[in-house]
Computed example of a mutant assay.
Amino acid sequence: MAKKTAAPLTFERFLRSIKVDKSHDHAEVLLLTCIDFRFFTLIAKEMDCKGLTGKYDHFILAGAALGAALDFSDAHLPEPKPPECSCKPLLPRLHWQQVFIEHVQIALKLHSTINRIIIIEHRECGAYKAFLKPEGYPKPTPKKDPERDAHKAQADKLEQIIKAHFPSLKVDKWLAQLKPDEVGPLMKHTPDARDSLLIESLS
């Protein structure tokens, strides 16, 4: 008799599995997401509805894992390279990865109770188009999903960086998308609009 395969872990089940200590007011999770405005409200609702209200710090960076993992010299940028910025950069010019790592450090200093980082990437990400794939990614098929592969590669890369600096932290990697695409905080939507936020595991 064939063994039943376990159902894939959903984001809802994952959040419910996180045991938080309500006896103190410190964060226990650091959440990393992209700057895309469409996702703020929906992700916050997901976190809050699953019992994580007041138990996570939220760091926002363009591209989420991509922004914290890329080497921001201009060598990786597609042709034609963008023109030099006419404004003078602040010195020292902090690398985006350094900014992320230093924010993790200060979060841990303020909340020694933080034990995991949750990375939430999202499809149709403008940062991925700007830095990696200007033409965008093709629609996924049952056999190929280049967009998911790109997000997984950057999330895996960031996980290695995090583990190198903070080996005791757990890292959880997810990929979100809006369905339907027009749902967002500036649109009229029903109270259950968070059902339009689909989040799949990148592990």
Rank of each mutant, 00 (worst) to 15 (best):
D181Y: 08
E147I: 03
T53N: 09
P83V: 05
V29R: 08
L94A: 05
H26A: 14
R194T: 10
S201G: 09
D57R: 03
E28G: 02
N115G: 11
K133G: 02
P167G: 11
H24K: 15
Q105P: 02
S73W: 07
L169C: 10
Q97F: 00
L108W: 01
A44F: 01
I119W: 00
D192V: 00
A27I: 01
P167S: 15
L52M: 13
G67A: 09
T10G: 06
L15G: 03
D74P: 09
E135W: 03
A193L: 07
L70F: 07
L202K: 06
L31E: 04
L70A: 10
R194L: 04
A155R: 01
E135Y: 04
K157C: 07
S17F: 00
A153D: 08
I18D: 06
R38P: 00
L77T: 13
Q97L: 00
D74N: 07
P140S: 12
C87L: 15
W96E: 04
L31K: 06
L198G: 01
I117F: 02
P140E: 10
P185F: 05
P140I: 06
S23E: 13
E182I: 12
R116S: 03
I106P: 02
E159L: 07
L31C: 03
I117R: 09
V171W: 01
F39H: 08
L77N: 10
V29S: 05
E12Q: 12
R148F: 05
K22H: 10
K179S: 11
E135T: 11
P134R: 09
I43F: 00
A27Q: 04
S196H: 04
H24C: 13
K4L: 12
E135P: 08
I120D: 00
L110Y: 13
A127F: 00
R116K: 07
L110M: 13
K4Y: 08
P80K: 11
P142Q: 04
P185G: 07
P80W: 02
I35F: 01
K157F: 05
C85M: 15
K152F: 02
A68K: 04
H26C: 13
T53A: 13
V183A: 14
Q160T: 01
L31D: 03
K22I: 12
Q98D: 11
T113E: 15
A27T: 03
F37P: 02
A127I: 02
L9F: 03
T41Q: 13
D195Y: 09
Q177M: 10
G67V: 01
P82R: 10
Q177P: 02
L108V: 12
H26L: 12
N115C: 13
K133A: 12
P180R: 11
R148M: 06
A65G: 10
P180N: 14
K3N: 09
G126I: 12
F14V: 11
I118T: 00
D181T: 14
D149M: 13
F40G: 11
C34K: 09
A6V: 09
S196M: 02
K45Y: 09
I114M: 02
W174T: 04
F166L: 03
